[in-house]
């Protein structure tokens, strides 16, 4: 949910309306959860979950065994996946963007919390949010050294993805 909030915040800072919400499940860190983000040029009224995303972010590769994370992903959609391994059963027309976000998070933050790293990768892969807006939202969310570290994690992933594109 944190990643969804931060993406919505960064999008809002890029002057679009945004909305982020969890799939309201188990309220503890580490449990499998879904969270959704919408952007629009006008006020967002729609409240249902997202069934046909333009993008997906997969934080934990082990979920791929149990859940069809690609369900509904639009043709031409982008999946940002936290892995270095090969991803199987990718539907035609879907672009996979692999990044070892856990490794970057461990190196930069010292913790396997990949939200901000994956945000950086998402920003670079999709162009939906700018690096500046992302940094601004991290500065708002975190204070002092924690903000700096998270910005570094996001920027590292951003640059890796940009370099590969």
């Amino acid at each position: 949910m944190t990643a969804a909030e931060l993406i919505a915040m960064a999008a809002f800072k890029s002057n679009v309306y945004s909305q982020a919400f969890p799939a309201f499940g188990v309220e503890r860190r580490g449990a499998p959860v879904q969270a959704f983000v919408r952007f629009d040029d006008r006020k967002i009224r729609l409240r249902s979950q997202i069934y046909e995303p333009d993008y997906i972010i997969v934080q934990d590769i082990t979920l791929l065994k149990d859940v069809n994370v690609f369900a509904g992903l639009k043709e031409g959609g982008i999946a940002v996946i936290n892995t270095e391994k090969d991803v199987e059963n990718v539907p035609a027309g879907v672009k996979i963007l692999k990044i070892n976000a856990t490794k970057i998070a461990l190196e930069v933050l010292g913790l396997p919390i990949e939200n901000t790293t994956l945000m950086g990768a998402f920003a670079a892969a999709t162009g939906e949010i700018s690096l500046d807006a992302l940094k601004a939202s991290l500065n708002e969310r975190f204070a002092g050294p924690l903000a700096e570290k998270n910005i570094r994690a996001a920027e590292t992933a951003y640059n890796i993805v940009k370099g590969e594109m």
Partner: peptide, 10 residues
Amino acid sequence: GFIVSHTFEP
């Protein structure tokens, strides 16, 4: 609950 209480929006 959740739909408004837990949604981030402007």
